[in-house]
């Protein structure tokens, strides 16, 4: 299988104690990021289409809903209309915390 088609092609083992990486990301969502954080982000952004977190544009340039991909053409996108973001950075951080939990099995608690 071609690398770019393979949901399992990204490799990075997240140490749940590396809260410094989460702090770095929260402080500078759009980067530039350290090499270690880039590896983590690449791992978080890679993976199966089923269950992938995405944003659905609610108001172009102004507001976005959190949503989840179904993993197969023709099935509905699950849009969570209770999660409306008015900042892309805020949305990016929220998805980061969801993926942190998925990778470590632990809630991300910084403070």
């Amino acid at each position: 299988m071609m690398h770019t088609d393979d949901p399992a092609a990204a490799r990075y083992r997240l140490d749940p104690a590396r809260l410094d990486l989460a702090r770095e990301f929260r402080a500078k969502i759009r980067g530039p990021h350290s090499e270690e954080l880039r590896a983590l982000l690449n791992r978080m952004r890679w993976g199966p289409l089923k269950g992938r977190w995405v944003l659905v544009v609610a108001d172009p340039g102004r507001a976005w809903w959190l949503a989840e991909m179904p993993g197969k053409r023709g099935l509905p996108v699950k849009i969570d209309k209770s999660r409306l973001f008015t900042s892309l950075d805020e949305a990016e951080w929220h998805v980061f915390t969801l993926r942190w939990r998925a990778l470590t099995g632990q809630e991300l608690k910084l403070d």
Partner: peptide
């Protein structure tokens, strides 16, 4: 998503 380095935005 890894290429764009941000959560994907879907339009309606």
């Amino acid at each position: 998503e890894a290429l764009l380095e941000s959560v994907l935005q879907l339009t309606p």
